[in-house]
Write a protein that binds this DNA or RNA. Structure first.
Lengths: 346, 346
DNA sequence: TTGTACGCGTTATCAT
DNA sequence: ATGATAACGCGTACAA
């Protein structure tokens, strides 16, 4: 593998000075067409490519790169966010370096440090659940920083979040409005910010509907799809609830699996839409976040800061959307149901 | 925002020379503990962070970054690939810069150029459907290069692919072995490499099973989930097929939607597993690719090359796995079916 | 319009 | 063990 040709090589080949090549490469116009042609020819002949790493160390120049630290790129929620960010960044001429923290504070901090050492121009970050270092302990200068999807652990930054509490409230009200009274909350630990928010919205809706919160209906052990399935299976056996608010994707799918196994279902609304929500029978009602908008907003904020926006730091709370597809309603009576259904389906 | 402190600043603050700071930062041991302490203190006091961009311009030094160009990061298939690559890369101390080509040749080429200008150490690339530039026209030096998921457009590189033809053959044989004779192929255009491969496997299986290929059963207009749904709906109305091989994810889901609408289903096997394949009734049989293994393999190859592996370029064809969950079988008779089913489910 | 000379932050050589 | 000095590839005063 040959060495990378440099500007000096090009200059030599084209019998011009370094500076003239630099001008040519940077698209300046005041340059003799004769020389320009010679330079172009030399560039093609040698296969010259700019070294942006080298260029970026000059004062005032940057890497035109944005760093993104999320929990897990394999999670569709985060890959959708990443895609939206990448899309906005690319349109502005920026690359995106993406890293997964796996919710581990130390790993997160290591990745942030690495990205700063790489001199990214901006940083978009999903704070890990188990935060390690405090952001106020990070030495200046910190590049424009946006927190995503989680509460803001640091004042000198912007943030973009979904209104989890409002979404959960709407979902729970929808279940209550068609007659459910013992609505179970099925989700992950309330140590997780989004879960706390969603549970708060759930509780608020119950209060509004004149239903007391029954703690035995709050299930926070659904870390995986399988656990959710077991928990909802137990609910069905005990007949302890008459509806389910599934506070995340895994809980929704676990609930559906439990319904399938039991041969009967409860009214259900889930948090976060999923690819096959239309395939349920009935189709599954969900609280949907505009994930792409969240990503685009975060990227826009960073790019705005890079373009000199010095307005006060702010938290953008984005609304969610309740999509009712039918699963929020109670199961029809047996006889009636048989009629309304085809002889079989997937 | 203050300026980044440099090694020179640290050296000055610690009253040492530049080189000693460099040694300290790079973890060399031959250094007076007294001075080391002074340097550490200065680093903390000034908030010094090394500038890897600057370091990487030295000959023999690299950016410790890998470039990845895929079709679309929002597609779970590619985000799973990206995650696996990132995971391997991170363990080896590499960052990954990810970009989406959107299957556009020009965009793809632009991103590849940008990554090379950024001096990534290695490149993993999904060649776009509409290739623009030929790789042989790209000037040397090209960093270690691995093609992913598509046929190899260039000899000086490694490649990692799934055995699409074998997977499709297995799927089709599974349908034939339970009695289907008019098996429809539902997928996207055969201009797409994976579709061609999967159709070839489908045709091979039919030949093996002693069934002729009926061209009217090959549907290649299912670009979206909705189109697939319409096409399969038509098949159901016409009764033109007695089974469906869905050659990609969207086709599988479209078929399931059509089954749901029609109130009856055909034996079905889909290509690529999906999150809720267990939620079907019966659960959906699929050909599954080991996407993570593909990503890890690609990353391992690049890292191997970076560590001096000079063995001949090779194409790794990874096997697929047929997962039979029940949907490959014909629908039971009406009476029988009613018994085998609970009164209702999602 | 073109070129000279220097600096960016880092690492490497080599002498001390 | 430590430091002066020269690169690395590129951009920019400033002079010509």
């Amino acid at each position: 593998m040959p060495r990378h040709p440099t500007m000096k090589d090009v200059a030599h080949e084209a019998r011009v000075s370094l500076k003239t090549v630099s001008r040519h490469v940077n698209g300046e116009t005041n340059i003799d067409p004769i020389l320009a042609d010679r330079i172009s020819a030399a560039i093609v002949k040698l296969g010259y490519r700019r070294n942006l790493s080298a260029a970026s160390i000059r004062p005032g120049r940057t890497s035109k790169t944005i760093g993104l630290v999320i929990s897990d790129l394999a999670n569709p929620y985060y890959s959708t966010l990443a895609r939206a960010i990448e899309s906005v960044a690319d349109a502005a001429g920026y690359l995106v370096t993406i890293a997964s923290s796996e919710e581990e504070g130390l790993r997160h901090d290591r990745l942030v440090d690495r990205l700063m050492e790489q001199r990214v121009d901006g940083l978009i970050v999903v704070p890990p659940r188990n935060a390690a270092r405090d952001w106020s302990d990070v030495a200046a200068p910190i590049p424009p920083l946006v927190f995503l999807d989680r509460p803001v652990p640091y004042a000198e930054a912007d943030a973009v979040l979904a209104d989890n509490a409002a979404g959960a409230r709407e979902a729970t009200l929808a279940l209550a409005s068609v007659g459910s009274r013992r609505i179970a909350f099925v989700g992950d630990s309330l140590d997780i910010y989004t879960m706390r928010e969603r549970h708060a919205g759930y509780a608020a809706a119950l209060a509004e509907a004149g239903i007391g919160v029954d703690d035995s209906l709050t299930i926070t052990t659904a870390r995986t799809r399988e656990q959710a399935e077991r928990e909802v299976g137990a609910v069905l056996r005990d007949d302890s609830a008459d509806a389910v608010f599934a506070a995340n994707n895994r809980s929704t799918i676990g609930a559906l699996l439990a319904f399938q196994t039991a041969g009967r279902r409860l009214p259900l609304v889930g948090f976060d839409d999923f690819e096959t929500s239309l395939l349920g029978n009935p189709p599954v009602s969900v609280v949907s976040q505009d994930i792409e908008l969240m990503g685009r907003t975060a990227a826009d904020i960073v790019l705005g800061r890079l373009n000199g926006d010095t307005s006060a730091f702010a938290v953008r709370m984005l609304p969610t959307q309740l999509i009712l597809r039918g699963s929020e309603k109670p199961e029809p009576e047996e006889a009636e149901e048989r009629l309304s259904r085809g002889p079989s389906r997937q």
